[in-house]
Write a protein that binds this DNA or RNA. Structure first.
Lengths: 245, 245
DNA sequence: CGCGATTTGTGCACGTCTTCACAAGCGCCT
DNA sequence: AGGCGCTTGTGAAGACGTGCACAAATCGCG
């Protein structure tokens, strides 16, 4: 594919490709850059400036340049970044060069939607298994996959090389599922259940709580309301989403 | 007792009490504290120490105390925090004393699930309208609500006092929907579409992108794999990923 | 009534993240 | 070849967030 140098993917047999030690904040933005870059590539752009890309990703351009500089020097001064090369680099760093297998546990309301969400497949992931603890749900077919019982996890994990577990169960069941996932060697968990998971060191958990997002918005609504009600108190406190057009 | 002013004393109906100026990081954690507090209250606890609450919320206890101190002084040294009082205070600050009406736009795969998610109702929100641009979806009934066409938004917004808009449409439609929401006065948007929204100043947008969460986990998987490959080389799972040449 | 056990609230130091501003590098045009 | 305009990459400064460690406050008990 590329005759470009691969600083992140050296051919040295046995050597570990030195992953740059990226700041967490940068890691969290890379997927956004990646999405913007794919859009640009689809639009026929071959290069893009930090200004252009940062606008497409909704961030400050200096921040974007600093983020990218952590990956190495893939831009050309006076020109910008090669879109295809940058996509390749970010995908490599994010570990998306291999399609990771995801096990989704909990096929209720939300789980159903996640199972049918094609954004996973289109961005480097493969839902390899649907699991549920409820026997009445086992056997159901969703999107071409048959729901299996969560106790089958050990065999499935080996068979499918599960890399990531997604928990979409009720809160009460989440910790137990997390324990089961950890037991079969899963070290990355995405938790949609509204509860705190306790996992051993070395296991990464990310949490998505839909109600929390609304509550944060509610705070800002409340705050905006109280500000406009105050006489002469129009504080210019911007939030982070000022994306000019 | 302290003669502290109670910024959130819910007794005062007319005047809007000055909201403390909270750090964003604190605001983002308050909902988590609130959830933990509700659990404690259900469990019969009347008071809780910062140590106990922080464990239940999965954070450092010093951080918790600092967060709460921003709300005012609602703890008692030597005792802890009054659970009921703290719930009341946090709910007040987050603006949850009134049940906010949410309009959900996009009743596809994900939208369906969100419409049926009872976590919204149980945490202070009311899904007041389901909207879609697709005429073939209009009229469908989900969870007791009938899907209406998105062009009816203006009337619905007034009728239902919509406070928050949730966008669960495909990315291509999201900006248009956002514009429509802003046009009817919505100033808080939760966006599930994988794209950047451009909105006028004063409108808050929060974004939830499920694939991005997985990609962040993927990075850490990738990183862990490259690290464990260092000593002795047990990385049978991921060695093939460093195909460079 | 005073003392010790307990827990909050916070000053301080440290690390991370953001943003500005600009030198260095690159390509194009004359 | 040389100059000019454009863009990257980065040093430095400041804002923000975190966590330790401890004084101040409170309760219970003898």
């Amino acid at each position: 594919m590329s005759q470009h140098r691969h600083p992140g993917a050296p051919g040295r047999a046995g050597a570990v490709p030195a992953l740059p030690d990226l700041p967490e904040a940068t890691v969290a933005r890379l997927p956004e850059y990646l999405r913007a870059l794919h859009n640009l590539a689809d639009g026929g752009h071959e290069t893009v400036s930090s200004e252009g890309l940062s606008a497409a990703a909704g961030v400050n351009s200096a921040k974007l340049r600093k983020d990218l500089s952590h990956l190495g020097s893939y831009g050309t001064r006076g020109v910008g970044y090669d879109v295809a090369l940058l996509i390749e680099q970010i995908e490599y760093v994010l570990g998306l060069t291999q399609r990771r297998a995801v096990a989704l546990v909990g096929v209720g309301n939300l789980g159903h939607a996640l199972a049918g969400y094609d954004g996973f497949a289109s961005r480097g992931f493969r839902i390899a298994a649907l699991l549920d603890a409820d026997p009445s749900r086992v056997g159901e077919e969703i999107n071409g996959l048959v729901v299996r019982h969560v106790d089958e996890l050990p065999e499935i994990a080996v068979q499918e090389s599960i890399a990531i577990g997604v928990i979409a169960t009720p809160a009460a069941a989440a910790q137990r599922v997390a324990d089961q996932l950890v037991a079969v060697g899963v070290t990355s968990i995405l938790n949609f259940a509204p509860c705190v998971l306790s996992v051993p060191e070395g296991v990464d958990v990310r949490k998505v709580d839909l109600a929390i997002e609304l509550q944060i918005l509610s705070f800002h609504e409340h705050r905006k309301a109280s500000l406009t009600a105050l006489p002469g108190g129009l504080a210019a406190t911007e939030t982070q989403e000022a994306i000019g057009t």
